[in-house]
């Protein structure tokens, strides 16, 4: 970098320490050349920075415990087959006889309901005859036919 100067090198040492490999890549070579050309200019700053670098180097690396690693891995995505297996197991618990019988039971219920419904007389629960059409039209407000009309007939 062409605008490298003494103050910039001192700023770099101030921020990144004495190890010039830690300097930003695009300024590293120019800074190193300047330091090597005039070492006395930077000796004091480098010495102070080295002491702090050495102190920071003592900070131990932190290693996750086996238990934490196992938990992190266990929380990871599951294969598609395993996901389907989980759904399958859930189905087996809820429908131990398989899904054929519940489906047959559902269809039978529908058939019985339809049969009973079709054979019922067209009479309301109040015991008065009324056609389905009358009630629907009245509910929609399309006729003057009311519930009272039917009750007091």
């Amino acid at each position: 970098m062409s605008d490298m100067n003494v103050q910039r090198v001192l700023d770099l040492i101030d921020a990144y320490g004495a190890d010039m490999n830690a300097f930003p890549e695009d300024e590293r070579d120019a800074a190193r050349a300047l330091v090597e050309g005039s070492p006395a200019l930077f000796a004091e700053a480098l010495d102070a920075a080295r002491l702090l670098d050495a102190a920071l180097l003592q900070v131990p690396e932190i290693t996750p415990s086996d238990d934490l690693m196992a938990r992190l891995i266990a929380s990871g995505p599951k294969p598609q087959a395993e996901r389907i297996n989980i759904l399958g197991r859930l189905r087996d618990i809820l429908l131990p006889q398989g899904s054929r019988w519940p489906m047959a039971a559902g269809l039978a219920s529908l058939a019985i309901g339809a049969l009973v419904g079709l054979n019922l007389p067209n009479v309301g629960t109040d015991g008065y005859d009324s056609t389905q059409g009358d009630v629907i039209y009245a509910a929609l407000g399309l006729t003057e036919y009311t519930y009272d009309d039917e009750v007091f007939q």
């Binding site: 900070v59 932190i62 690693m69 891995i73 990871g76 294969p79 996901r83």
Partner: peptide, 27 residues
Amino acid sequence: RAAAGERGAVAALVARYSPGVLGLSQR
């Protein structure tokens, strides 16, 4: 591969990045 649930890839990502993440968080 990890997104597809491949256990080896999940473990590799955990092994590679968990120390840095834990170290940063702990400090």
